[in-house]
């Protein structure tokens, strides 16, 4: 509080606004990361399912041969 009294109201509020911008955009960025992570996980699960399906097909073809 004492330090704040020295920097003046304009500087103080500019500092507060700057911190607010950083934190708010970090929240937005975090949401993006969360979505990317979830998407990536879905892609991996999808790829895994496809590879398993292909392996099964290959196995049945080999058995037929």
């Amino acid at each position: 509080m004492k330090t704040v009294a020295f920097i003046g109201p304009v500087h103080f509020v500019a500092l507060a606004y700057f911190i607010c911008i950083i934190v708010s955009l970090s929240v937005a960025w975090f949401i993006r990361i969360l979505f990317s992570g979830i998407k990536w996980q879905r892609h991996i699960a999808h790829a895994h399912a496809i590879s398993q399906m292909l392996a099964r097909k290959k196995e049945t073809l080999e058995k037929k041969d």
Binding site: L25, A28, I31
Partner: peptide, 8 residues
């Protein structure tokens, strides 16, 4: 969550 940067 659908448009985080725009909203923020």
């Amino acid at each position: 969550m659908m448009a985080p940067f725009k909203g923020m």
